[in-house]
Write a protein that binds this DNA or RNA. Structure first.
Lengths: 148, 148
DNA sequence: GTACATGCAAAAGATTTGCACTCTT
DNA sequence: AAGAGTGCAAATCTTTTGCATGTAC
């Protein structure tokens, strides 16, 4: 994904500031690390100390509302962000309930919604997220019995 | 689900206090409303003003860690809770990105994980959540084109 | 030029925590 | 009796907001 995506998605409704470009590029580059707003801010801050945390929050919220990024919640008390690459296979997240590690699970369950739009009861689904919980391979030992 | 579930799940490791019973019963009763911790606190407060908000938080966290309740995030800035009824068909949540309404979607995509445990790459999945986003039937008009 | 965006600092919320006291076991 | 749990209030942490200033279009 390159910056012209922003131009297109903003569609004249939002201004393409250099701050927004930097934030977008940072989230693009670090997308597999699922950075939080604070993380993005800190990465950027080294090179561009003038960009404020509030701008990072505002921009991530904007990109999220436009479907450019996905806002994730792994249950650790802050939101995390990744690029929403519509043309790639949807991937989902496995979260270890013992150590908190996050593992990407590509393609699982994707076929249910990947057709783009999906109507159920007059509802039109444009996107979805799947979170799986359990024990990662390092934590599989000492695990309690499953809840069911 | 009745209170003896608690006795069993606590397994001697946690004490069965009347506060925990009340919180559990409240979340059981209001589970389809996905109450937040504050909501639970307020419902309980009418009858049991002595129970503190911190206890509600602590208990919901405990029940969540034991797999008795699911902690949900609909993106409105607070966590919400529902009973994790392992023996019922898993249900998921549709969240309208226009008005914020939440609609339950029963059974969709459930078969991917419903077999209980599911091993991928040494990972053992014990639970999962699926969030679908889009426009509810009241908001379908005036919707922008889908991101993909 | 003008409306929108930013930076800063303060505010707002949600959730957690320290501590003295209480209660389950 | 002992240790875990509770209530309260304060603390913490994330996210939002008001406002004066800056800037993309």
């Amino acid at each position: 994904m390159n910056t012209s995506v922003l131009q297109e998605k903003f569609n004249g409704k939002y201004k393409l500031t250099w701050q927004r470009e930097i934030i977008f590029r940072t989230i693009s580059k670090y997308t597999d690390q699922h950075p939080s707003a604070e993380d993005v801010y800190e990465i950027i801050h080294r090179q561009h100390p003038v960009i404020g945390l509030a701008t990072v929050y505002r921009t991530l919220e904007l990109l999220s509302s436009l479907g450019i990024v996905q806002k994730l919640d792994f249950g650790d008390g802050r939101h995390r962000y990744e690029i929403n690459d519509c043309h790639a296979l949807h991937h989902h997240h496995f979260i270890c309930i013992s150590c908190g590690k996050v593992v990407e699970m590509k393609g699982i369950c994707a076929n249910t919604f990947n057709a783009g739009r999906n109507d159920v009861d007059g509802i039109s689904v444009t996107d979805y997220q799947l979170y799986a919980y359990g024990y990662c391979k390092d934590c599989e030992k000492n695990q309690p019995p499953p809840p069911c």
